[in-house]
């Protein structure tokens, strides 16, 4: 792998570094720019939350990172560096070696992400066989099986050894989610992209799965990107948050700081959507209006049409501006003291 280390800075080099990422999908109605100029860093060992509604570009951003943008969609601009390597120059073989070994991904619904026609054992062993260098050349599958059992135990599958020859549909929803996590983490990746890991689950199981991911992150020392539309999930499990809206990051900062002092009107709206235990009687105030079409945007703040604070000056491209320590927001009024 070609290493192009970024120049030495005070902070450790980020594990993942995205600059000016732009991902487009041609459609009949026109070119949809699903991700438009995203800059993001993920530090080693940290958990970054990505928050946004569906269509905000949060999943597409990380599908771009892991090279799973299906044609005719494509990455139009920008750079993605992972562990010093430029991912945009990777060939198919390079991608195969990277995925599953260095970067892993879990999907929203384990029921559809796990292959219904293959046993759990096969689906977890095959990743190990594909990537684990330290497996013996002979009896590779048997060695992989031993390690797979260990991994399934780690994520809390009871009777892993006897149950791993079952098919995915024979497990409960929470167990399936754990199996998917076990598969993703089987090769101890440096980065886990967890795309909506809890959306398909019951509330009680949601917390268990999130705790599991947090525990494993600490145990393996990996970085986690937690993609969600639920700020509540982010508040409890991440170090840093980036809020996305209509293909752009609109606010980013340390989780505690961002939740306590949201600066972008959209983030403030999202926080208004979190039911607070202390104030359950307060009405939840939804954000009025719709996400704009992602065709031919530009020359305006994308949230302006739904924004209660908009000014005539909002009709221009708004850059990110610092609003605190490592805290930035894409709003001309971000510096103001607002109610």
């Amino acid at each position: 792998m070609l290493l192009t280390r970024s120049s030495a800075t005070d902070r450790p080099a980020p594990l993942l570094s995205i600059r000016g990422l732009k991902t487009c999908f041609p459609t009949r109605a026109g070119l949809v720019t699903a991700v438009d100029g995203v800059d993001l860093d993920v530090q080693p060992g940290e958990c970054l939350g990505i928050v946004g509604e569906s269509g905000s570009g949060k999943s597409v951003t990380f599908a771009s990172v892991i090279g799973l943008i299906r044609p005719p969609g494509r990455i139009a601009e920008g750079s993605i560096h992972f562990d010093g390597a430029d991912l945009r120059t990777l060939d198919p073989g390079g991608w195969r070696r990277l995925r599953g070994r260095d970067i892993a991904m879990t999907m929203q619904d384990a029921l559809t992400a796990l292959n219904p026609a293959l046993t759990v054992a096969e689906q977890i062993c095959e990743v190990l066989v594909a990537h684990a260098q330290d497996l013996p050349r002979r009896n590779r599958w048997r060695a992989a099986r031993a390690r797979a059992i260990e991994m399934l135990r780690l994520v809390g599958i009871p009777a892993a050894e006897s149950r791993m020859d079952d098919y995915p549909h024979q497990f409960s929803g929470g167990m399936r989610q754990r199996i998917m996590i076990a598969i993703a983490l089987a090769c101890r990746p440096k980065l886990l992209i967890a795309d909506e890991p809890t959306t398909a689950l019951d509330v009680t199981i949601q917390a268990q799965v999130l705790d599991l991911i947090s525990d494993l992150r600490r145990e393996f020392g990996m970085s986690v990107v937690l993609i969600t539309h639920d700020l509540g999930v982010v508040a409890e499990h991440t170090d840093r948050v980036a809020v996305m809206y209509a293909g752009q990051i609109v606010e980013t900062g340390p989780t505690r700081d961002l939740i306590a002092h949201p600066r972008h009107p959209y983030t403030r709206g999202l926080i208004g959507l979190i039911p607070r235990l202390s104030d359950l009687d307060a009405p939840i105030k939804p954000i009025e209006g719709q996400v704009p079409d992602l065709i031919g945007l530009g020359g305006t703040c994308r949230f302006a049409d739904r924004c209660e604070l908009r000014l005539p000056e909002c009709r221009q491209d708004i850059p990110m501006r610092p609003v605190g320590a490592a805290h930035e927001a894409r709003c001309i009024r971000a510096g103001e003291d607002l109610p």
Binding site: M105, D109, A113, N115, A117, L118, V127
Partner: peptide, 29 residues
């Protein structure tokens, strides 16, 4: 088009394995 093929790709499996094992076993039904 299904999710499990995307997931299999995200696992870094070979194209051959994805097509002739993951996809075909379902598409043969």
């Amino acid at each position: 088009r299904s999710d499990y093929i995307t997931f299999a790709e995200a696992k870094g499996l070979s194209r051959r394995r994805i097509l002739w094992r993951h996809a075909l076993k379902n598409a043969l039904v």
